[in-house]
Amino acid sequence: MNLAELQRNFRSWLVAPDDAIAGVFGAHAARGLHVYQNNYRAQLIGCLEVSYPQVRRWLGDDAFREAAICHIVGHPPHAWTLDHYGSDFADTLLSLYPRNPDLRELAWIEWSLSEAFVAADTRALSRDVLAGVDWDRACLRLTPSLRLLPATTNADHIWFALDNDMTVPQGAMLDAPGGFAVWRKGFHSQLDRVDATTFDALCSLRDDATFASLCDRLVDRLGEDEGVRRAGMLLAQWMDAGIVADIDDGSDETSMD
């Protein structure tokens, strides 16, 4: 058995252990192989527990463990960092609990908060930069920590209650669709549920960052006066919240870079 064969057999043992594979390494190896097998599973379960503490609390330890094992069997790790493991755990939860979109959205919130925590840094943007901006050319650069998901349930309220040891509300569908936004301000990850108009505006900025396009979109949706007024209001809110990281109109004065 050459090295490549040995390593592929070892992988097979870890992912789907059986006696035939163990036998390849000799009878004396069984005890040690079980240590590696246990380490592999325990580490991945522990990783999911760390990444999804509120999902675990909401599901309960036993149900969470079953979901974690199901995920591990179907999703062997690939990335160089263990931090990426569990990025698709929400999909496993959806397959196990198809009638609970709140659970999937809760998992998305937890994962996004973790991603935002270590996303690239941005500097605070002062409102002073607004003076002299050429708004016809201005582009809004969003913080790289921003994560967006259409919201259909009250998963944000569930997460907040779990995170603060409060009475957890029943999962419920929203009366009107909106969106979840997760980002980081300073060193603190933030979660907000926004209305459909704001969510659409944020999503559109990822495709077309110009302020003029944002205004056009809001005018189409809300009418001339309200659309322009909302664009200004949202810009101010997003700057204060740290969602807009930079405004660039091509001149040296405005860009923070």
């Binding site: 490549a4 390593q7 592929r8 070892f10 992988r11 870890l14 992912v15 590696y36 380490n39 592999y40 580490q43 991945l44 062997p76 790790p77 690939h78 990335a79 160089w80 263990l82 493991y85």
Partner: peptide, 10 residues
């Protein structure tokens, strides 16, 4: 190995 990462020191 082969796109798999055990995250253990094998």
């Amino acid at each position: 190995v082969a796109g798999f990462n055990s995250h253990d020191l094998l």
